[in-house]
Design a binder for these strands. Structure first.
Lengths: 237, 237
DNA sequence: CTCACCAATATGTATATACATAATGAAAAG
DNA sequence: CTTTTCATTATGTATATACATATTGGTGAG
């Protein structure tokens, strides 16, 4: 969190904060430029600079004559193209099925929890579930959700909705860190994914923050060469 | 390549082009704002907008009283944090060694060449080499370089300098696409990496373009769990 | 000769203004 | 009742101007 040194940066940070915190949900109309002009006691060029930047970052969407609106979160896919798993499976023309394996509520305490970014004694949701493409397991998901950051998650059963999909529509924006590596499937993982032990698997670990607070850590294990992560970027953005 | 609809976008594209093409090498001084103002017959605010954007994209560096300069390319690491391999190895406190395995010049013709983005009959440099950490192979590199995009590469021996390091200092900026997957090492790969066959390996494939032209396709194979790719991003950028 | 100070300079930010453009909603014409 | 037209409105781009800020290079006091 850098201290905004200039006015347009402060406006940008203020509005960004409201969006990230969920105070202004997706679809919410941002005040018009002339309203912000009045609110901050500055010229239109200054608020325009802030809003233009927010639009380029994908946080807001601007429409002439209508105003500016909080953008629907496009998941982290926009930057690191990891799609929502349902979308991904359906893009392959296969029927998608989701299945919850376990869900427990506990306090952060293990060294792994600390590595994941959760401070000691933070209440956590510990979830294991699977995503299927047709009859075959497509991906194993092991997820921790901080109930400090997302208290509403405590009352969700996640029996029918995958936690990823639910979070995407409840945490509009965040900082994200991806770690991707290859591992040989251990006995338990192999059984869950229905592949021989020692099969090469792609493990994608994603940690996300919202407003400086860690929100969730998810480990996605994809069997064999069935999956690739693609990231594309251009200087212009 | 989108057609610049506004003046500041055209200025941005013009300068970006000069940098990407290498016409303005790293360290080269961009014309002062007042010079560009004159050249384009516009106000300083307009050129300032273009230069500010170029600076945020990391293409140029701005210094008060001195002017603006073409930035030293920081590799793609800035966005997808894949470091230069030498740096990566040395960060582990291990001695780095590079070794060229094969280098041939040929024309693009195989379906794989086409998949990599190289049109038929484009002259290519086909390179295989290895990066060592201490005595152990750290990573296997298989690279194609388009001699159409980088003709200077034809006279390089790459006996002592890894093609990646050489390219980074000769192609300042580009669009890049990363594909990351897990594979089991085949017999040949296993031998090159000095690991048992079927070891899970992380394969990072990177394709880069410069001014719309494909420049290089590199496949980096890391053995076992020795390596992870980390990508981090924040909305602000 | 050294150091403190100052003027010149290029970028950084902000203002007031102007006209262009796209989309909305309502009034007018068929 | 439908379609066309038009004024309204919010954003998009650009200008001329102003002052702030950081840095370079030189100048003068000690």
């Amino acid at each position: 969190m850098t201290v905004p040194s200039s006015l347009h940066q402060r406006i940008l940070a203020d509005i960004g904060q409201k969006i990230v915190s969920g105070e202004w949900p997706p679809g919410h109309r941002i005040p018009f430029e002339h309203e912000l002009t009045e609110q901050y006691g500055c010229s239109r060029m200054t608020v325009n600079k802030a809003l233009t930047q927010l639009a380029k970052a994908g946080l807001i969407e601007r429409r002439k004559r209508s105003g500016s609106f909080v953008a629907r979160p496009r998941s982290q896919a926009a930057v690191l193209e990891i799609h929502d798993i349902r979308t991904e499976v359906e893009a392959l023309g296969l029927p998608y099925r989701y299945s919850l394996s376990s869900l427990t509520q506990r306090l952060a305490e293990t060294p792994e929890d600390a590595t994941a970014g959760f401070s000691d004694a933070v209440p956590l949701l510990d979830i294991a579930c699977r995503h299927f493409a047709g009859d075959a397991p497509f991906c194993l998901e092991e997820r921790l959700i901080s109930l400090e950051a997302v208290p509403e998650a405590a009352v969700q059963s996640f029996a029918d909705t995958a936690p990823g999909a639910w979070l995407i529509s409840h945490v509009p924006w965040s900082t994200a860190e991806h770690t991707i590596r290859a591992v040989a499937a251990d006995r338990a993982t192999a059984r869950m994914l229905d592949v021989p032990p020692n099969t090469a698997c792609l493990v994608v670990e994603r940690r996300t923050w919202s407003g400086g607070l860690p929100v969730t850590r998810v480990r996605l294990t994809y069997p064999g060469t069935s999956h690739a992560v693609v990231a594309r970027f251009t200087p212009e953005g």
